[in-house]
Computed example of a mutant assay.
Amino acid sequence: MKAWSRWQDWVTLVAGLYAALSPIWVVGASGATPALIVLGALIAITSLVALANPGVVATEWLNVLWGVLLFVAPWAVTYTEGQGASWTSWVVGVVTVVLSLTAVPASRAAHRQVIQH
């Protein structure tokens, strides 16, 4: 697989950027701001690494972890009263987990291809 070609990583990159920047436009996100910025940035950075190095399977699993953490953040950090921030966390978390899991087989194939050459 060629670098910068996996669509799942492009979507998770955009989703991570959206989460990281969402405190700018999400009303009532004050308690959620650190979680959204940090986890959104981690998703975006990990997606960039996955795009540049499609055979590194760990990046997909890291994004699964960041997505799960972002999904549970409204309860863990207690910002469920902020609907905009909560829904951003839940939607971006689910999108990140689902797309990262669907990218794992392609990442494993790219990893095997690099090892064989």
Score class of each variant (00 low, 15 high):
Val98Gln: 03
Gly16Ile: 06
Asp9Ser: 14
Gly31Arg: 15
Arg108Ala: 11
Trp7Ala: 09
Ala52Pro: 00
Val114Glu: 11
Glu60Asp: 14
Ala20Ser: 11
Val38Gly: 07
Pro54Gly: 03
Ala52Lys: 15
Val64Lys: 02
Arg112Leu: 15
Pro105Asn: 00
Thr80Cys: 05
Ile24His: 13
Ala103Cys: 06
Val114Met: 13
Ile24Gln: 08
Gly28Asn: 07
Val14Tyr: 02
Thr12Gly: 05
Ala20Pro: 06
Ala3Leu: 02
Leu42Met: 14
Ala106Thr: 05
Leu36Ala: 00
Leu13Tyr: 01
Leu62Pro: 04
Gly84Thr: 05
Phe71Lys: 05
Val114Asn: 13
Ile43Phe: 11
Arg112Gln: 10
Trp75Leu: 12
Gly84Glu: 01
Leu65Ser: 11
Val38Arg: 14
Ile45Glu: 03
Val97Asp: 02
Ser30Val: 12
Val91Thr: 13
Met1Asp: 09
Trp7Ile: 11
Val14Leu: 14
Ser30Ala: 14
Pro74Gln: 07
Ala52Ile: 02
Gly16Thr: 07
Lys2Ala: 12
His117Glu: 12
Gln116Ala: 15
Gln8Gly: 02
Leu42Glu: 07
Ala85Glu: 08
Val104Leu: 11
Trp61Arg: 06
Ala103Thr: 01
Thr102Trp: 12
Val26Thr: 15
Leu42Trp: 10
Gln83Glu: 12
Thr80His: 06
Leu13Pro: 10
Phe71His: 04
Val77Arg: 08
His117Trp: 10
Trp66His: 15
Gly31Ile: 03
Pro105Gly: 01
Trp25Gly: 06
Gln113Asn: 11
Ala58Ser: 15
Ala103Asn: 13
Gly82Ser: 15
Ala50Leu: 02
Trp10Gln: 05
Ala52Arg: 15
Thr102Pro: 00
Leu101Arg: 03
Ile45His: 03
Ala29Leu: 11
Gly82Arg: 01
Thr88Phe: 09
Leu69Ile: 02
Tyr18Ser: 07
Trp7Tyr: 12
Gly82His: 10
Ser47Gln: 06
Ala44Lys: 03
Val14Trp: 07
Ala29Tyr: 13
Gly55Phe: 10
Val11Cys: 02
Asn53Tyr: 14
Gln83Met: 13
Met1Pro: 08
Val98Asp: 04
Gly55Met: 11
Val114Arg: 15
Thr96Cys: 05
Ile24Cys: 01
Ser30Asn: 12
Val14His: 03
Gln116Ser: 11
Trp61Asn: 05
Leu62Thr: 07
Ala19Trp: 07
Arg108Asn: 06
Gly28Glu: 01
Leu65Val: 15
Val26Tyr: 01
Leu70Ile: 02
Gln113Leu: 14
Leu69Met: 14
Trp66Asp: 02
Leu62Phe: 15
Trp10Phe: 14
Thr59Arg: 09
Ala52Cys: 00
Thr59Val: 08
Ser86Cys: 05
Ser107Tyr: 04
Val114Gly: 06
Lys2Val: 00
Ala20Cys: 07
Ile115Asn: 04
Gln113Tyr: 10
Ser47Tyr: 07
Val27Leu: 09
Gly31Gln: 13
Trp66Ser: 04
Arg112Tyr: 08
Val57His: 00
Val94Glu: 02
Val11Phe: 10
Ala3Gly: 09
Gly55Val: 08
Thr12Ala: 05
Ala106Glu: 06
Asn63Pro: 01
Val92Leu: 04
Ala110Pro: 03
Gln116Glu: 13
His111Arg: 10
Pro54Phe: 08
Ser107Ile: 04
Ala44Thr: 08
Leu65Cys: 08
Val68Gly: 04
Gln83Cys: 00
Trp10Asp: 01
Ser30His: 07
Ala19Asp: 06
Trp90Ala: 03
His117Tyr: 10
Val56Tyr: 09
Ala35Phe: 07
